[in-house]
Amino acid sequence: MAKNMSPGLFIQLIVNALTIGSIYILMVLGLDIILRGTKILNFAHGQLYALGAYIMFLFFQTLKLDFTLSLILSGVALALVGALSYLGVFAILNRRFTVSSTFSYRLLLSAMASVGLMMILQQGTLLCFGTQELGILSPFPQILEVGDTRISLSRLVIIFLSVAICIILYLMMYRTSFGKLLRAVSYDPEAVTLQGVNTFWIFVACFALGSGLAGLAGGIIAPLFSITPSMGQNIIFITFLVLLVGGIGSYRGTIAGGLLIGLLLSFGFQFLGSAAELIVFMLVIVILIFRPGGLLGEAAE
């Protein structure tokens, strides 16, 4: 790592780290909500992110709608897709399970089902939007000049939007009764059923909320990075990685993990080039030696 780094570069790397870190945080929060609520590891999550970006393109670039409106619509659209995917796939799958179905059995089948879903979504997106890269003209093309450094406004907007969404999410999960229900279900679904609440619709809500977050993440990032058919594949790896590092079931861990990975990748790519991904992956494995549950997650025993 170069020790003689200009402060300008340093700030740029930090901003970059925060940018991608905040996107990872949104993605992992979405995945975690689904995982904790329904115990399903949704491999299609990355594809929902890609779909969010494409739909953002549709609304903002093609239909020329207002930026904020497009973003909201992308989130809602993906929430809908998420709800439908639960209704169409996982709800039916749940029927197959009996009381004596083991945890590993359920996990495997639902994960595989989500892989099937991912394949369908991926190819479907490809067929609808074609294989070339798409680009969105950023509504925030300005570059800020702070002393020596040049920071693109787009990145700051991304960070700002992500933080805003996180705050809204926090308020929803911890201050509303709906949020309390969602959290209760992840803790003890049986107890919630006993209270007379139909967990079925809570699961749908988990999927809608989680998928909506992925869609928002995709929509937010769309003006900054190009939209490619493989963006879903790429992001799902890092999303899983952050989930693992931060610890499953800890929101604070997710934020810590997202920021950590963002920092590592941002600085890593600058100084290590293409080897960065590998180094980061290996670092994560090392972390797991000392903290089996992830940084802040439920320890594995």
Binding site: L107, I248, L278, I285
Partner: peptide
């Protein structure tokens, strides 16, 4: 590696083995 991986329960194990598979591929490529 297994000594580390197996300590992690269910979902974490799936993810960690997936990451490990990527690590091997990337290491071979690098």
């Amino acid at each position: 590696f297994g000594a580390v991986f197996v300590r992690n329960a269910g979902v974490a194990f799936v993810i960690i083995t997936l990451i490990f598979a990527q690590v091997v591929v990337l290491a071979a490529a690098q």
